[in-house]
């Protein structure tokens, strides 16, 4: 028999993690969607968005298309990945237990 048998995650635990990760994904997707939909919506409804001028003669809409959206997507992507990783680490396996007792459980010679 394999001596490295780990405690397996129960189906209910995996199911719960899936639902929580799905909630994270949906939340960030809604955020993404709002940004993407908001861009043309602003162009259509707010004249200022296209007519005003920032430094260099750029309109706010142009500046957002040229720089802002890329920054926003990068931030959203990194945040979603980090949160998903943290959720998975906390909801599956026994990391919480390992972190808590690693030092006290080590054999005398390994401390």
């Amino acid at each position: 028999m394999d001596d490295d048998v780990d405690a397996r995650d129960a189906p209910a635990e995996v199911d719960a993690t899936f639902r929580t990760l799905r909630r994270v994904a949906v939340g960030y997707f809604v955020l993404f969607l709002l940004a993407v939909v908001g861009f043309p919506a602003l162009s259509l409804t707010l004249g200022w968005w296209s007519d005003a001028r920032l430094a260099g003669g750029m309109s706010p809409g142009f500046a957002m298309a040229a720089f802002g959206l890329y920054v926003f997507f990068a931030v959203v992507g990194v945040a979603a990945a980090r949160l998903s990783g943290a959720v998975e680490a906390r909801m599956l396996g026994d990391d919480a237990r390992d972190a808590q007792v690693a030092s006290t459980d080590a054999p005398e010679g390994e401390r």
């Binding site: 129960a10 929580t20 909630r23 237990r97």
Partner: peptide, 30 residues
Amino acid sequence: AQEYFFVRTYLTLEQARYGDRLQVRYDIDP
């Protein structure tokens, strides 16, 4: 997360005892 680990450990043990009579559903906000 640590308390959740404790709860699911407990429920896994109880599920082994009760079998299909005990169903569990977690709904955890991230």
